[in-house]
């Protein structure tokens, strides 16, 4: 991440309408992904990098693009690295 660069959040939420007629217990908050490629525009040179082995693990060489997805189940278990 370069200095002065605004870091947006890669996940957003919305709240679907809940009807008293809905048969299933409502999911009140839905999450969706807004990945880094939506925000950067043309990649500027010299973005901060991972080391080669960390890059392989992350799936990207540049830290700015690192946006891992975890299921709600995983997040409850605290699987995040």
């Amino acid at each position: 991440m370069q200095k002065g660069m605004h870091m947006p959040s890669w996940y957003k939420t919305y709240h679907p309408y809940v009807s008293p007629m809905d048969p299933c217990p409502p999911i009140t908050t839905k999450r969706y992904s807004t990945p880094p490629n939506l925000y950067l525009g043309f990649q500027p040179p010299g973005l901060e990098q991972f080391t080669p082995s960390a890059a392989l693990k992350a799936g990207t060489l540049w830290k700015y693009f690192y946006d891992p997805y975890y299921s709600t189940r995983e997040m409850k278990k605290g699987v995040r690295e």
Binding site: P52, S53, A55, L56, T60, L61, W62
Partner: peptide, 14 residues
Amino acid sequence: LEQIQAIDFVIVEL
């Protein structure tokens, strides 16, 4: 093998 995979990954990304 993982060392090779890591450096080859950097190559693909670049």
